[in-house]
Design a protein around this nucleic acid. Structure first.
Lengths: 235, 235
DNA sequence: AAATTATTGTATCATTGAGGTACAATGATA
DNA sequence: TATCATTGTACCTCAATGATACAATAATTT
């Protein structure tokens, strides 16, 4: 019997899972939780309160794990296969955390999970484990271990969506600090798309979009011509 | 008390709604159900059985309304706003159909709806009302009346998604019969995208994709040069 | 303080793809 | 057999992208 999770106040049979992307040291990263005293890793998730809209629930879940509000957030897929969860994994994961779950506990029932992906400024997040987890840490997207249930599928589907909409919706800027160089931006694009881009053409294209403000201050410190700093304006 | 709808066997709090597109007489159409003895119109929907995957449930719902199997089908959005349903509408709609619903009936509870859009060959569908409906009919997308709950939003979001992926995923062919002329295809594109396309460029582009098989047989009957017939091959 | 180095900002040329026009080909009709 | 309406294709133009060249410059080295 769990004294930590109660079905009260939450919509039954539905959860939200969030693939939270960050960018640091030219690496694309996501936040993962472990389950207490186990090696199992999972994408941060939670449930929906009766009083919440979906979007609000997702924002709350994100704030609880990152400390950030007003995060860029988008639905990308609903995961609802009949056997997407492995009950034995959940049972033993909870047992390792000190919670014994009866076979008819609501966590043992079938769940539909709504997948969201979030893009955040790595430098501003403070990853915080939840009550079932010892750790909440960044993992390089290239080195994600096997995840619980269908969470590996979630991550690859989220990445696919991010790639697809990167140019279309100009969402990459949500992963950068407020001020950045053209080189920072290109590194971000190259990392997400996993391919090299021609510097000069990339610069021409970005500038032609009319969404960047070139600041007076330049980025100094390196032994070469100082690059301009930019800020994303959106128009 | 409803003797037609029981919560047994279905996942609670989750429904599937399907925006079913067809193409006929150079018009893009969707299938709508009315509620018995009312003017209320809704997109066909249903619930998910314990034994079904999401996709399977959606396919079943589609088959029940159209008689077709193996339909092109895609999730496009989850609708889960707290107040997306108007309980009074549901109550009186069911009452008009001869079903009295208690306040705590499962249909009166909050529902999350997974939106799917489907593309079907108009000529092959046989629209069939469900037990709560008198009619199941095609409506020109330009002349959709106000729909129940947030179903108008669903339709516009589905159309937006269809437009967005039309070129990207080459899904338009699902709306045409197996064999068609280049003119048929162009009319379809012009109708969905709601803009005129240049005939010669459209033809060049479609042929260059390498996804069409040009048949030996030509389309005769009109007082002009007989156009080729094509079949979609996908490669 | 002058030369060197690494990188940046911009100009330019080449190639590709899409927008647009012209015209010969042809199935049915007059 | 001539006419008509539409189709299939060639071609011209222009815009976007790929690719190369080179001058400008902040820090370092000499």
């Amino acid at each position: 019997m769990s004294n930590l999770i109660s079905a009260v106040d939450y919509l039954p049979g539905i959860s939200i899972d969030c693939v939270i992307f960050g960018f640091h040291d030219n690496q694309l990263k996501i936040l993962l939780l472990n389950f207490k005293s186990t090696d199992w890793l999972a994408v941060p998730g939670g449930f929906i309160k009766e009083s919440e809209n979906l979007e609000e629930a997702a924002q709350r879940i994100l704030e609880e794990r990152t400390g950030l509000t007003n995060i860029y957030l988008e639905q990308f897929h609903v995961f609802g296969d009949r056997n997407r969860r492995d009950d034995e994994v959940m049972k033993s994961a909870m047992a390792a955390g000190g919670n014994i779950i009866e076979p008819d506990h609501f966590l043992m029932r079938r769940f539909i999970s709504i997948g969201y992906y979030a893009l955040i400024d790595f430098t501003k997040a403070t990853p915080t484990p939840d009550v079932h987890s010892d750790t909440c840490e960044w993992y390089d997207i290239e080195e994600i271990p096997t995840l619980i249930y269908d969470h590996s599928l979630m991550v690859s589907k989220a990445l696919e969506t991010l790639r697809f909409f990167l140019d279309e919706k100009l969402i990459g800027f949500n992963l950068l600090p407020e001020v950045f160089t053209m080189n920072d931006l290109q590194n971000l694009y190259e990392t997400i798309l996993d391919k090299k881009l021609l510097r000069t053409n990339f610069q021409r294209k970005m500038l032609s979009l009319g969404i960047l403000e070139r600041l007076d201050k330049k980025m100094t410190g390196a032994a070469n011509k100082a690059p301009y700093l930019y800020r994303f304006t959106g128009k």
